[in-house]
């Protein structure tokens, strides 16, 4: 359960990180809206995941935290890639 929560935290934090990048904003055809909220999420959720993982025995907790960064990044990257492909389709059809 802790590992799953850490995964959710990392995925949301990295999604926020992605949405803050200008190249991804251009691909998704979105502006730089809610930047402050996204920055807060990007900062707070990894720390929340770390606090959760510290409740596990060590070094398992630390390894889960780092591992969930990798898996969360893959998930967030996948979501952004699918979104960018979908955003591109109307332009290609037009």
């Amino acid at each position: 359960m802790i590992a799953f929560m850490a995964l959710v935290c990392w995925t949301l934090a990295l999604l926020s990180h992605g949405l803050l990048q200008s190249k991804i904003q251009r691909l998704l055809l979105i502006g730089n809206t809610h930047a402050t909220a996204l920055r807060v999420v990007r900062l707070v959720l990894p720390l929340a995941a770390l606090v959760l993982c510290m409740r596990l025995t060590q070094p398992l907790g630390l390894m889960i935290w780092l591992g969930m960064f990798s898996l969360g990044g893959l998930l967030a990257g996948g979501v952004l890639t699918v979104a960018s492909v979908r955003a591109r389709k109307p332009r290609a059809e037009a």
Partner: peptide
């Protein structure tokens, strides 16, 4: 860091 999640399969 900026391109951490940038993947453009197209």
């Amino acid at each position: 860091v900026p391109d951490l999640l940038l993947f453009r399969p197209f």
